[in-house]
Nucleic acid binder design. Structure first.
Lengths: 343, 343
DNA sequence: ATGAAAGCGCTAACAC
DNA sequence: GTGTTAGCGCTTTCAT
């Protein structure tokens, strides 16, 4: 739809000037007399002129917009990250476009393609849980599109990244469960190819071995769709509950998985933490008021978004190609509540 | 950024054809021979040609994109609505841009302006809680921008709307509290100017008077920022708790308010429902596992999004200006759980 | 200080 | 069946 009724051409015609003079006057060029500038800007204001950003983008190849790709905004962690991104974007006059992959590689590809073709100046992305191959992003990166990864990153592309200390977050969480007296600690996590999975898994394993407990692979369950499918989480929980040596605690590795496991334990009438304790990564604001109050590993989501956008703007605004990149690792916070109370 | 290295011009040069022939071949025009079409499309595929939608938009004044404006994606209701919108948008080849107002009129204006200037074909919007004047939308509507309102609508613009039956949702909720034995039922709601506020307030009042209970205005609290500010909700709760005739139940009118009130009652060590019962509008998936399990009025959020997008596409695709509009009113569902159990 | 004109990538009248 | 050309709204040399 073309809603901008008045164009630079209209102004030129009315004021008996050329389009270029009007364009320059509007952009406050030194070539134009103050008198003309005043004339033009007043006419423009009076007629509510707005430059057409589509035409500007086409011409300048720059859009003052950045794209965001997350798996789902229906997730406190990502919505908080987005708020952090917005906090710096708006301040700098950038607009953002939010898209969701729903953990699908195809949708990730589609969204990234659409965003880049609508001329974004940069991309902020957390990979879908299906994504194994990042060639689509590699290609864009090589063409010079500024990209910053957060949360779920890839080693295959050298650019800025903002993540949390997944290893220590998981280590401390598992340690807390051990210190609370739990011995058979299960772990339900995302697909192995996700960057976050490895760090959290290793932290969990290390805490066990450091405390003289052997890692039992039967206690480790992967949700291939990153928790998008309630069914796969249910299957994991059911398998754990059916074990002869049933785990006495579950450590969950992502937002959706954590809250879903809580629901499933309720559904199965499992007393928490008496029969099975629960502690997991989640940024829900409701930890305190869940039944029982939920022990959580919380990520500084707003800060992740803020720093990601700052780094992205650094690349966008840089005069020279950026070749030196950094990976920021932020700390997580452990909230010990009743779901992991000493049994 | 211009990332589309290969353009229609490049293809034309390589194949020794004109740009228009290539353009037509790509668009499968009847004027072009099969042989040429094949040649062009194969070359395009081989070189990963993608049309530049910016240029297409500029030319055609059409973008195959729609904009969404909600107060915050950090809200289960809106994120579910968005999923509903996406479900039909993707099927029809449309992309969506999500923006947030954070209940600010200024941000609403800014987002709407940005979206329309980036050439969207239509707008789906739920008003911010600050919005009293809809002139900015009125102007776009008059210029012919297809708009569909959902959730928080306005009477001042005649277009399609998708809402829920707020009156009956609130009536039935209040009735349930009355039937459970509660007598002094407070109501915490959004600002009075929001469309949803009136319906819910009236349903609440009607249920009281139908049951011989006089409406007491001191029991009705408005949160001027729609629950965005935790502080204003806290103040409302504190005022209610400090009353000599303290309410024995609270009926809350929106997602954020409901969960915040639950947190606040916990914080004040109020036994739910023994001291104060709680029931409210919310689309949280965690109702069952809250402490106590939370009685809720749930909206068909996905369906709201789906129908809104269908109606919007109806306007977009219509050959003639649409003048006959409808308002769809969907039912809410009441889930009776422990927070409103008979005391 | 101002204007003419080219061009961003594409589409579509209108030629040939 | 294919090519030429103008133009979407804007910016930007390059003239004047």
């Amino acid at each position: 739809m073309n809603l901008d009724t008045i164009t630079i051409r209209d102004i030129a015609r009315e004021l008996k000037l050329s389009v270029s003079t009007v364009s320059k006057a509007l952009r406050d060029s030194y070539e134009i007399s103050e008198k003309t500038k005043k004339l033009v800007s007043e006419y423009a204001a009076a007629h509510n002129y707005r430059p057409n950003p589509i035409a500007q983008s086409l011409k300048k190849g720059q859009s003052k917009s950045v794209g965001i790709v997350v798996s789902s905004v229906d997730n406190q962690f990502y919505s908080q990250v987005i708020n952090g991104i917005e906090s710096v974007a708006y301040k700098e006059g950038y607009n953002i476009f939010i898209t969701q992959t729903h953990e699908s590689f195809d949708l990730e590809l589609k969204n990234v393609t659409h965003l880049t073709h609508r001329s974004i100046d940069g991309l902020l992305i957390s990979l879908s849980s299906e994504t194994k191959d990042v060639e689509h992003l590699q290609a864009l990166h090589k063409k010079g599109l500024p990209i910053v990864f957060f949360d779920r990153v890839t080693d295959d592309i050298n650019t800025h990244k903002v993540i949390v200390d997944n290893f220590n977050g998981a280590y401390n969480a598992t340690l807390h469960l051990l210190q609370s007296g739990y011995k058979r600690i299960a772990h339900i996590t995302s697909p192995a190819q996700l960057s976050i999975t490895g760090g959290r898994l290793n932290g969990y394993k290390q805490a066990l071995t450091d405390n003289g407990i052997a890692v039992d692979e039967r206690y480790i369950k992967y949700c291939m769709h990153g928790g998008k499918d309630f069914d796969e989480i249910e299957q994991a929980v059911n398998e754990l509950l059916a074990m002869k040596e049933r785990p006495d605690a579950i450590f969950t590795a992502s937002d959706r998985i954590t809250t879903s496991v809580l629901s499933l334990l309720h559904k199965n009438n499992i007393a928490i933490p008496q029969q099975v304790a629960l502690l997991g990564f989640t940024n829900t604001l409701l930890g305190e008021v869940l039944n029982p109050s939920l022990s959580t590993v919380v990520q500084p989501a707003f800060e992740i978004g803020k720093q990601s956008m700052e780094l992205l703007l650094g690349i966008i605004k840089s005069k020279h190609p950026v070749t030196k990149f950094e990976t920021r690792v932020l700390p997580t916070a452990l909230f010990e509540r009743n779901s992991s109370r000493r049994s």
